[in-house]
Design a protein around this nucleic acid. Structure first.
Length: 532
DNA sequence: AAAAAAC
């Protein structure tokens, strides 16, 4: 089967040929003729199956006839994340290079000005995330009554993210005479219901999963402890001689911390999550694609759909708590016919998540043992930043002002240089730890204000906004309904037992120490809270 | 339990 047989025009075929693709993927082969024929399509497929081109190619073909009018786009593609939207836009540019199609990318986090200018000039293809599109609609800058082709991509993810009401609102603005292409990786009942209302007599096309739990991705779990994760990660990165890697964390805060930690250890690293400003997100992703950033520490914003052809490794710094996400995350490697390696750090608290993952993929994930206990000398490790030799790559430490507790001195020996610990003794120690402190309470806000402070410091906003924890010497939250007076009972804070509290405080400091600079981490968290 | 998406 070749692309010529699908009914696409010469210009599109030329653009496809120039990218080097000769053979359509199953979803392309099946969907393209139906899209060209004007049929609604329900595509059940994940990214990595060539799904994007299965709608962009025939859309370019269809839109090549006709002209756009101001503020009335002729087609609309909805994507759940900004990065995916940008990726689809690139796809259009690549395959539409021999057509004069105008395109606008409407995503949040960037200025309205350019987007409005493009809309005014009239666009053939509008690619958008729901929030920003509705914003433009509300401002009267775009009319959807001229949309002839609507694409709803990654529908199940839109559902996960709570976008369905937005999608329904957007669909109401588009005439029924449109052609609708609807893509989803899975078909939960809620999505099924949507297809019944959005689609008319659709052609259902289902393609098998791309190499998810299959041959070209080698998977393994690596046993570690919560405290030992960053050490273990570095050992793995060195051990594996990674070309590049995506490192997934479950929380945005941990993305920042792990990225800082790796940076401090001289690695070439970038961080990606939804609270970073869009220009940083774009720059980081471009840098990773181009190879100037070798390690990408990311939240699940990068778990699905991102198409980076050449990712050698995926590390799950945190095991995903939703087993579906595991498949998506590891699917960022082993793409475009390449092989990939996916390691998941697992602690003893993660057992049930691992069980769910193994159930989903249908087999047990083997345990990986480190092959070296020695840290590689910095200069010899390819993946570490070229500038790693000069310790200036580590961010300069600002003096700590927010904590009275003195820093723990740097250990003389890197922990990796120590002989491997006796696993049995370790397990016993962990178990004892666990029995002594059965609840790993992490409410450090409450422990912090027991520490004397050298100078008053404003509580980071995320702590204030959550309303728990309060220092005796600050003003406290303003509660409007009580004026400035706050009844005493509202200021009661449940005190943790002294011993437990101390342990937690120490753990927090250690964590942040390794990550680099206490102040900086606090600032990051604060900035994130403000942006959220 | 968390992430994502609008100012």
């Amino acid at each position: 089967m070749t692309f010529d047989e699908l009914g696409l025009g010469a210009e599109v075929l030329k653009a496809v040929a120039e990218t080097g693709y000769t053979e359509p993927t199953p979803i392309q082969a099946q969907a393209i003729p139906f899209v060209l024929a004007g049929r609604d399509v329900l595509g059940i497929a994940q990214t990595g199956t060539g799904k994007t081109a299965s709608f962009t190619l025939p859309m370019i073909e269809k839109l090549s006839r006709g002209r756009a009018r101001a503020r009335m786009p002729r087609s609309l593609i909805l994507e759940p994340t900004r990065e995916l939207a940008a990726q689809v836009a690139e796809n259009f540019e690549k395959y539409g290079k021999y057509h004069k199609l105008s395109m606008a990318l409407l995503i949040g986090g960037v200025s309205f000005g350019d987007q409005e200018k493009k809309l005014d000039r009239g666009v053939d293809v509008l690619i958008a995330t729901p929030g920003r599109l509705l914003d433009h609609c509300g401002r009267g800058k775009v009319l959807l009554t001229g949309v002839q082709i609507l694409v709803i991509d990654e529908a199940d993810r839109m559902l996960d993210m709570g976008f369905i009401p937005d999608i329904e609102e957007i669909c109401k603005k588009i005439p029924f005479t449109r052609q609708t292409l609807f893509f989803s990786a899975t078909m939960p009942p809620e999505i099924q219901r949507l297809t019944d209302t959005f689609l008319q007599n659709p052609e259902r096309i289902e393609v098998s999963r791309p190499a998810s739990a299959s041959t070209n991705i080698t998977q393994a779990i690596v046993k570690t402890t919560r405290e030992g994760k960053r050490d273990m990660l570095r050992s793995l990165i060195r051990d594996e001689n990674c070309k590049n890697a995506i490192i997934f964390c479950n929380r945005k805060r941990d993305v920042s911390i792990v990225a800082k930690s790796l940076e401090r250890h001289g690695f070439s690293v970038g961080a990606l999550h939804g609270d970073l400003d869009q220009s940083t997100r774009t720059k980081t992703l471009d840098g990773f694609r181009a190879g100037t950033i070798r390690l990408l520490v990311a939240s699940d914003v990068a778990a699905r759909g991102l198409d980076i052809p050449d990712v050698s490794h995926v590390f799950n710094f945190d095991i995903p708590t939703h087993s579906e996400d595991y498949v998506h995350r590891i699917g960022r490697t082993g793409r475009a016919g390449k092989s990939g390696i996916a390691y998941t750090l697992v602690t003893r608290e993660d057992g049930k998540y691992l069980a769910q993952i193994e159930k989903l993929i249908g087999n047990a994930v083997p345990v990986h043992e480190l092959t070296t206990a020695q840290p590689a000398p910095v200069g010899e490790v390819a993946i570490e930043a070229e500038t790693a030799a000069e310790p200036a790559t580590a961010p300069e430490r600002k003096p700590r002002r927010s904590r009275a507790k003195p820093r723990k001195p740097e250990p003389i020996l890197d922990s990796e240089a120590l002989p491997p610990a006796d696993p049995v003794a370790e397990l016993v120690a962990e178990t004892v730890e666990h029995i002594e402190h059965p609840e790993p309470v992490r409410r450090h806000e409450q422990t912090r204000h027991e520490q004397p402070r050298s100078e008053p410091r404003q509580e980071p906003r995320h702590e204030r906004s959550r309303g728990r924890g309060r220092r005796d010497d600050d003003e406290g939250p303003k509660v409007l309904s009580f004026g400035d007076h706050i009844p005493a009972f509202m200021l009661n804070v449940v005190k943790l037992p002294k011993k437990g509290a101390k342990d937690i405080e120490e753990e927090e400091i250690e964590e942040v120490d390794d990550a680099g600079n206490v102040e900086e981490i606090d600032e990051i968290v604060e900035v994130e809270a403000q942006e959220a």
